[in-house]
Design a protein around this nucleic acid. Structure first.
Lengths: 346, 346
DNA sequence: ACAGGTAACTCAAACGTTTTCGTGTTGAAA
DNA sequence: TTTCAACACGAAAACGTTTGAGTTACCTGT
């Protein structure tokens, strides 16, 4: 077992000073050809690599970015991370991941753990609890300490930083328009309680599209599912809720769902009620994950280009980190959505 | 914008030495009650937090673990990470993630980036390419440098380190037995080309179970799908392959698939061929992900308890890191599988 | 012979901590 | 008056780098 070798050790072995070794390895002209060769050969032999921590301390930058997300077992977020990682790797950065599990305190703890020198900047999407509590002190504090932050997807308008968001409004408009074009007259929306910005925007897009086509549904065709219903196991109650929604609105011929699970579950319920998809009911979901692709029938979805989002967020952050002039001009970048048409629509 | 404050700055402000500040903050009895109060008050006011990088350099440990996985947009791996993160957080460690994207060179690069002081130890699952090339020099080298490594799922026997594996053999036995109990006579296996250990073990378990019940299928009921078929878009060729497999073996009444996608696709093909599930064909998959749960009919799967795997891996690593005596006695921990019964079996 | 120049090094500070080993000032005991 | 703890604090080294500012020794031109 040969431990990592340091400059000091090389210096001692070759009987030169530490600075000489350092300079020799950097091919400095201050050092004679002879010594350079000797040092470099030795360093190679012992597989010398400069210690990152020491470099970080000296340069006051870690070349590491912190990513705080609510959940990782989730197609959207894992895709975002892979985008971040891709961009980070190509620019020589590492990615440290913290999970809030939708909890405010976890989010705070995770940020505090990282904000003390471990990373150069944050990329984050806040937890539901944080949005609910509207307590953003951890964000303002980190930003005030001069640490760059990029928020994505679940962003907070009051916070002054770079942001990357999905064009949720436009995505919902597109989806709704598609259904209208396809002849739907009674389009329902399955969404969450709307303290989450994203859900609200999608609802607005849906309403806007209807309005533009002067469609005014008889009843309120919006089902607001209690958010807890999404959690892991209790799919049954979600199914029940959707089932009674369907039964209460027999005329439904189109459904927009704000996520995959809702859409898939709606299809499942439809099948149970012998409603033919896409013949008598067309369904569009949000988030283009595995479920959409492999469902039967496969699901038409609004793709959010999660990977691109991650890349863009990382790009903004790293640009900011490497910018010389310290001007803080913050950018909000909007990722356009695409409608991926599959079998659940005509 | 108030930048992070250091011991030095506090010392200067209060006109004491750095050591005094450090000691005062640690409530050392060397420092008078008076000074302690003063220092602590000041530190609190300016929200002093010790710089992690400096601590890492001093203590020669970073309290960070590196995780290298082939893919993150994958239910199994993201679940493992969440397990790792959970355990890590509770023990005061951070998690840095590197993705190999199944590429050998990416794996090597990622490891080298982290092995120079950034982390205290690795948790990893090797890429397919690494298994194919059988080049493990990056692993042996890091281990030789005294960096603890824990491998999970895709482990390499020749490498001497802690390991966490799924009992794939037993899982396949259980699944096959289940189908036999349920009356299946002609059970097929859909697997990958078997340079991946995991696939091989599952095949062996399948064969063992058949043998134990003295079932010797007329023909070879094993379909080895070319691995590339799994990649993203070309589901059609996978479907075709399975379809001809089904057509060539009309007597099939049970299917074991080594992953979710194969299982789901098999069900899709069955539906197309008007084969009723579970009445005339029963299907069991591996990996209990979202697809299994939401498929119609929902899929019976062998659950690998990915989250627990991650927790265990992190536990082994951290225990190793914090162990005083430097004895390297490596452990291989086997995670038992569970059969989650759903609608795709009787 | 000597200023001046140059090649090839070494020194030391700095990044922010922690910790060991002083050291100076008390007050009290001898 | 001396001696010696006890007390409260400071200096310095160490972790591993980088880098600007010395410091040699030798050579050149006059």
């Amino acid at each position: 077992m040969k431990k990592k070798v340091t400059l000091k050790q090389i210096a001692k072995e070759l009987d030169v000073s530490i600075s000489t070794v350092s300079k020799a390895l950097k091919n400095s002209i201050e050092i004679s050809e002879d010594t350079r060769q000797k040092v470099q050969a030795f360093a190679k032999l012992y597989n010398y690599r400069p210690n990152n921590i020491a470099l970080s301390l000296k340069n006051r930058k870690t070349k590491t970015i912190g990513v705080i997300i609510p959940e990782i077992v989730h197609h959207f977020f894992s895709k975002v991370i892979s985008g971040i990682e891709k961009q980070a790797l190509s620019r020589g950065y590492n990615v440290i991941v913290g999970l809030s599990n939708e909890s405010f305190s976890n989010e705070v703890i995770n940020m505090e753990m990282l904000a003390n020198g471990s990373i150069d900047g944050f990329i984050l999407s806040v937890s539901k609890e944080t949005m609910l509590l509207q307590d953003y002190h951890h964000l303002t504090e980190t930003i005030n300490q001069g640490m760059p932050v990029v928020m994505f997807d679940r962003v907070i308008n009051e916070i002054n930083c770079d942001k990357v968001i999905v064009d949720d409004f436009e995505g919902a408009v597109k989806a709704t328009n598609k259904l209208i074009e396809n002849g739907c007259k009674n389009i329902g929306l399955i969404t969450t309680k709307d303290y989450i910005n994203v859900g609200k925007l999608r609802t607005q897009g849906y309403l806007k599209a209807l309005e533009d086509h002067e469609i005014f549904p008889e009843a309120d065709l919006i089902l607001k599912v209690d958010d807890e219903k999404l959690s892991e196991e209790n799919l049954e109650s979600l199914e029940k809720e959707i089932e009674s929604f369907f039964k209460a609105n027999k005329s439904l011929d189109g459904i927009i769902a704000v996520n995959e699970i809702y859409a898939i579950t709606a299809m499942k319920v439809a099948r149970k009620l012998k409603i033919k998809i896409p013949d008598s009911l067309q369904v569009i979901g949000f988030t283009d994950g595995v479920l959409s692709k492999h469902a039967v029938p496969s699901l038409t979805t609004v793709s959010q280009h999660a990977s691109k989002m991650g890349e863009k967020a990382a790009e903004l952050l790293i640009n900011n980190l490497e910018r010389e002039d310290e001007e803080d001009i913050f950018e909000t970048f909007t990722i356009q959505t695409d409608l991926i048409e599959r079998e659940s629509t005509k």
